[in-house]
């Protein structure tokens, strides 16, 4: 059976994914979509991967699920390397990792009935006899609170929220342990979103699932994720527990993101960092700025930022940040209490 070496279900190490887009005099041009990402996901947790469009968060999901072959780096799933495209992976590892896409309108085949859509994962990954197949599918639909008559409907005839429920049911069919959720609710209204998120949380407890939740919605992540990782231009900026993340955001980009979230109550207003306001736009991943990729938009820029790319630093246990401001502090080897004092100067 599965050999559990440590408590990490998925380990991504120095993952790079470049896309070849053309060439000029200097040589080939690449879009550096994912540029050296190291990320761990523990058993049973929800990791929120947050970033703006074009930051490479979906590329990570597609590489993990095997739609792309990584340019370099490793992906370890339960201790086994799966850093190759899906056609070269074993069936058992494909069964364990499933994905739910952003737009249910285009991820479900409009010419198939829900029955046909749901039958496929059973046929490939399980040895369910044909007679029991229907019973299994009805059970699956029950899990996502859809009635059995949905089996005979086709995707265009049902609502957006229901379609996404079907997509979730399809991902659950092979009884996976890791599900990648690629912005599953961003195309839906808030009242429908709440319903789907609650269902996902229930299913996680019931089926012992691990989620990698990709989104651009920070306030949603505060309520869903155990840990949050922020991505900017193919690199991870900050990883932290979701509570510390909002109470003590370190990276200037994180502060900018949180200050941009529109909020509805006063207690939320207090959490927003006041001094960092959003300026500039995300640069093109073809011409990534030298040094720290964020330095063009950063209000706390120091000379070193445009020259040297910062390293990942563990600021406090479980709180990893990649910024020169905090590297400097660590070099001084100060006490943690001093660190916070100096930090307040930065704010």
């Amino acid at each position: 059976m599965k050999q559990v070496i440590n408590n990490e279900i998925l380990k991504i190490e120095k993952l790079k994914k470049y896309f070849h887009v053309g060439k000029d005099k200097q040589g080939p041009i690449y879009v550096r979509a994912v540029d050296g990402v190291t990320l761990n996901i523990k058993y049973g947790e929800t990791l929120g991967l947050v970033g703006e469009s074009g930051s490479g968060k979906s590329t990570i999901a597609y590489t993990v699920v095997g739609m792309y072959r990584p340019t370099s780096g490793q992906i370890l799933f339960k201790g086994k390397n799966i850093g190759m495209e899906a056609s070269r992976r074993s069936l058992s590892s494909k069964k364990e990792i499933q994905i739910v896409f952003q737009d249910p309108g285009s991820s479900l085949n409009p010419r198939q009935t829900i029955e046909q859509i749901l039958a496929l994962p059973f046929r490939i990954h399980t040895q369910v006899p044909k007679k029991q197949l229907r019973e299994k599918m009805v059970k699956l639909l029950e899990k996502v609170e859809l009635s059995p008559d949905y089996l005979y409907k086709s995707p265009p005839s049902i609502g957006g929220g229901e379609k996404q429920m079907v997509a979730i049911a399809r991902a659950m069919a092979s009884n996976p342990s890791l599900i990648l959720l690629d912005e599953p609710t961003s195309a839906l209204d808030v009242s429908v979103q709440a319903k789907i998120i609650n269902k996902l949380i229930d299913l996680q407890k019931e089926m012992n699932l691990t989620y990698l939740f990709i989104t651009h919605d920070l306030s949603l992540m505060r309520n869903v994720a155990n840990r949050i990782a922020i991505m900017y231009l193919g690199k991870i900026c900050e990883v932290a527990e979701s509570v510390t993340f909002f109470e003590k955001p370190l990276h200037p980009y994180t502060q900018m993101l949180i200050s941009s979230v529109p909020v509805i109550s006063e207690e939320e207003e207090k959490l927003k960092p006041k001094k960092v306001i959003s300026i500039g736009e995300i640069p093109s991943p073809v011409n990534i700025p030298s040094g720290c990729s964020f330095h063009l938009r950063c209000p706390y820029k120091i000379p070193i930022c445009s020259k040297v790319d910062p390293e990942m630093i563990e600021f406090s246990p479980g709180h990893i940040v990649r910024c020169h401001l905090f590297a400097k502090l660590e070099n001084k080897k100060q006490q943690r209490s001093d660190l916070y004092e100096e930090e307040s100067v930065i704010y």
Binding site: G159, G161, V190, S191, V192, Q193, A194, K195, I197, N198, D217, L218, S219, L220, R222, N223, V224, S242, V243, F246, I258, V261, V263, I264, S265, E267, E268, L271, K272
Partner: peptide
């Protein structure tokens, strides 16, 4: 009321059950 409760907050507190139906 239902709409307000469905909005996720950055101060935490979980997510309400949403509005049933469509």
């Amino acid at each position: 009321k239902g709409l307000l409760a469905s909005v996720p907050k950055i101060s935490g507190g979980g997510i309400a059950k949403g509005i049933p139906g469509k």
